[in-house]
Design a protein around this nucleic acid. Structure first.
Length: 803
DNA sequence: AGCACGCCGACT
DNA sequence: GTCGGCGTGCTC
């Protein structure tokens, strides 16, 4: 028997299956999807069995046998194996990367080298003998001196010592020591025969008698009996109990098994949506739905009901949410409804905890997984529904290899299982909305909020006018007044500051110099906490300069409107207001996110001030005012999705106000009130925005009218990168169809990051049968040749952004 | 990728 | 003479 193996080596010429001989002893256990340890050249590596066959094209002498089978059961099902092949092709990535991304990081390969002493009697050097100290198997990393290394090499060449590689995974299954007590008769006999001095032993034996034949963890036993480990050890040696190891799960938080919450009554629209999904599911159709519901229209309740039906039929459900909204508020709703059948996969879990959640899914102990992007690869084998909440979020696209989009993977998996996919959003991506309009997806619409609460009233404030009247603060007069009223009425306020591309920077008022990163072409961001300037692209940090680095002027100060600055200004304008600030700085600590939200929900603060992370999922009854301090910041990004992102953000933030009994009000401050993304966000109607934006996309040839692929080149040398980008562009232009447009090469919007210059080409196409083939060839040139001169080239099919 | 092999310069 | 520099080539 021959096994085709994808080996754990991410390199261009290795990106294909290698044939290995299956030892007879493994023939009955080995399966596609299991991991193996195989010899590869002079070393040992981990690999994934992708196929078993009877014959190989290769001469028998060239085929090496598999060293070791790592898994008894496949870790990758045949469905996921097939999916990984598809993923590798679609995203132009290595098959090994496509396989690895499906498993928790804990299962990545770990290699440990050991030196094995074969003939200890032939070791002569005293130093080496001393180092060995009689041991036969020692970790190679213990050899730390050059002298020992030299001797080791000599012994290896003489065959006296060999080097062996142990192949395993990063994090092991957690095991605890369990103690199984002997039967009553044995214990009694031992007790009777105990030495009269051994009081503690007798005490333990008497304790054990009460639990004869039972099993308990060693830790618990010692806690409950109050006995020292040494006593336990002796008693075990005398045969009073047996030790065994039991697999356990790491428990991230105490399992909360609340009673099933009473579901809300559905609105007519919700019921219609649910019926559609149910019918499709009953008919085993792989149908994709776009659930377009205004903020607060109860999309989650539709999800929960649809999942309930699926579970009742014995099938499983995957729910994807953006990491940022994977809050306790969100997950507890699922846990309340489905109890311990839910696994939560979020980034705050440790590698071991994620691994354990994965194992629960794999073993079928849970039926619902709720998680961020990578949860789309949950190892279920009978999926009944896949849901992507906030489907327009760019976090569903992975920005390093394999550069997949969770939406595409969801649709692919749903095709396999013939089950529905629900894409939910108040502000769908243009791509999805266009597909739904064309009938590729099925459109489901929720226009009303369940208790018929009115949408908040939105006021756009022209900050240029404010400036003219001499108001130079971050707060326009109307917003300041609205805040004051809420503070008086003791209602809560959310203030949103979109930091992206508009954070505080340091500027010299005499010569206009902005302090920039020495490695990147981007201004440094001011951080008050440590009086430091930081680069958000390469991590560079420096002290805030006292004088201008250019003109030596002392008139250098920070500008812009970071959340810290905003907080100071609030303190000045509204000295009585209690403010909670929520941004990357205040939520770095584990659990601080939840803590801040809890404080706010308990009314411990009047104002919640924050960035992106407060735009979603917040649902507190007392919020009646939302203020957007600067709406323009995403508007002027060098990206074709800038308007779309701004519109989505404005709509999402506005949706935080007036979700319950009290009516809501929203103020959007901007320097470009006439921009259609702002104007239409004010109207809070998606369709007019969609129409406008589609016209713009059509005019400039962007998605959804064209597909886009981004090829980016970076190099330390500006001339070289321009040269290679030119070469690449020429190749693409020559080899792609006439209808395809290749833009560039052009310098990227951030033209230098980490001392590497960046150039890019944009490929725009409606239908390009030669795309994959051409890109593969381009990658081949790069991998086999260009890479040697220090170039890095990346290909991103349908990128989330293009700067 | 990572490891061995191989062919030329500065050391005991 | 040998140690070691990193160019080249291969991995079932």
């Amino acid at each position: 028997m021959i096994a085709e193996v994808i080996v754990d080596v991410a390199a261009y010429p290795i990106d294909r299956p290698f044939d290995y001989l299956v030892p007879e002893a493994l023939e009955s256990v080995i399966e596609p999807g299991t991991r193996v340890k195989v010899p590869f050249g002079p070393r040992k590596v981990l690999g994934y069995v992708t196929m078993l066959k009877d014959e190989s094209e290769l001469a028998l002498g060239k085929i090496k046998p598999i060293d070791e089978l790592i898994d008894l059961d496949p870790v990758i099902s045949s469905e996921l194996l097939e999916l990984s092949r598809w993923l590798a092709v679609e995203t132009l990535s290595y098959e090994i990367d496509a396989l690895q991304v499906m498993l928790p990081a804990a299962m990545r390969a770990k290699y440990e080298k050991f030196i094995i002493v074969e003939e200890p009697e032939r070791i002569e050097d005293a130093d080496f003998k001393a180092f060995l100290a009689g041991r036969k198997r020692i970790q190679l990393k213990e050899v730390d001196s050059a002298e020992l290394m030299k001797m080791l090499k000599k012994y290896v060449s003489e065959g006296i010592v060999t080097v062996d590689t142990a192949v395993g995974q990063q994090t092991a299954v957690k095991k605890v020591r369990m103690i199984r007590m002997a039967d009553e008769v044995t214990l009694q006999t031992l007790l009777d025969s105990s030495h009269s001095n051994a009081k503690k032993q007798a005490e333990l034996l008497r304790w054990m008698l009460e639990y004869a034949g039972k099993t308990i963890s060693a830790k618990q036993l010692m806690e409950q009996s109050g006995i020292q480990p040494a006593v336990l050890k002796t008693v075990i040696e005398r045969g009073a109990a047996f030790e065994e190891l039991a697999e356990v799960y790491r428990e991230p938080d105490a399992p909360q098994l609340k009673d099933t919450a009473i579901p809300e009554i559905l609105t007519d629209e919700q019921q219609i949506a649910l019926d559609h999904i149910a019918t499709s599911e009953d008919n085993q159709k792989a149908e994709t739905f776009l659930l377009h519901g205004v903020t607060g229209s109860g999309k989650t309740e539709v999800y929960l009901r649809a999942i309930k039906r699926v579970l009742d039929k014995g099938k499983e459900a995957i729910v994807l949410v953006p990491e940022i909204s994977l809050t306790p508020q969100m997950t507890s709703r699922f846990k309340e409804r489905f109890g311990s059948l839910v696994a939560v996969m979020h980034s705050a879990l440790s590698a071991g905890e994620k691994y354990d959640e994965w194992r629960k899914i794999k073993r079928g102990e849970v039926k619902v997984v709720i998680g961020a992007r990578s949860a789309i690869f949950a190892p279920f084998e009978n999926i009944g529904i896949i849901i992507l909440d906030e489907e327009h979020e760019s976090t569903y696209k992975q920005d390093d290899t394999p550069r997949y989009h969770a939406r595409d993977v969801a649709i692919k998996r749903a095709e396999y299982y013939n089950c529905p996919v629900i894409l939910g959003s108040a502000t769908p991506s243009l791509e999805s909305y266009a597909r739904a309009s064309k009938g590729v997806y099925t459109m489901l619409t929720l226009t009303k909020r369940p208790k018929d609460q009115a949408l908040p009233t939105v006021t756009v404030v022209d900050m240029r006018e404010e400036l003219k009247t001499g108001n130079r603060s971050m707060f326009s007069l109307p917003l300041a007044e609205a805040v004051r009223i809420r503070l008086e009425k003791r209602e809560q306020i959310v203030l949103f500051l979109n930091k992206r591309g508009f954070s505080s920077f340091v500027l010299c008022r005499d010569c206009g110099t902005v302090v920039e990163c020495p490695n990147c072409d981007i201004s440094l961001t001011y951080h008050r906490a440590h009086e430091q300037l930081k680069c958000h692209y390469c991590g560079h940090e420096e002290r805030v300069p006292l004088v201008c680095p250019e003109c030596k002027s002392e008139h250098i100060r920070f500008f812009g409107t970071g959340t810290q600055k905003a907080q100071e200004e609030i303190a000045k304008l509204f000295p009585t207001a209690r403010v909670l600030r929520m941004d990357v700085d205040t939520t770095r600590q584990k659990g601080s996110h939840e803590r801040l939200l809890r404080q706010f929900s308990e009314g411990q603060a009047d104002i919640l001030l924050g960035t992106q992370m407060i735009a979603k999922g917040l649902d507190f009854p007392n919020i009646t005012l939302v203020g957007v301090l600067a709406a323009d910041t995403t508007l002027h990004l060098a990206d074709f999705r800038a308007a779309e992102k701004t519109f989505q953000l404005m709509t999402q933030v506005s949706g935080r106000a007036g979700r319950h009994e009290l009516p809501g009000e929203v103020f959007i401050q901007t320097y470009s009130p006439e921009h259609y993304a702002i104007e239409l966000a004010k109207a809070q109607h998606y369709e007019p925005f969609y129409t406008m934006e589609m016209a713009a996309r059509r005019q400039y040839g962007y998605p959804p009218f064209y597909f886009v692929t981004l090829v980016q080149f970076t190099h330390e040398d500006l001339l070289k990168v321009a040269d290679f980008a030119e070469k690449g562009a020429r190749y693409l232009k020559q080899n792609l169809s006439a209808g395809t447009v290749v833009i560039g090469p052009t310098a990227s919007a951030i033209s230098r990051v980490n001392n590497r210059y960046r150039y890019q080409c944009l490929i725009k196409y409606k239908k390009e049968p030669k795309l994959t083939e051409t890109l593969q060839q381009l990658i081949k040139y790069y991998r086999t040749d260009w890479i040697k001169s220090g170039l890095i080239m990346t290909v991103d099919v349908e990128p989330a952004s293009i700067y």
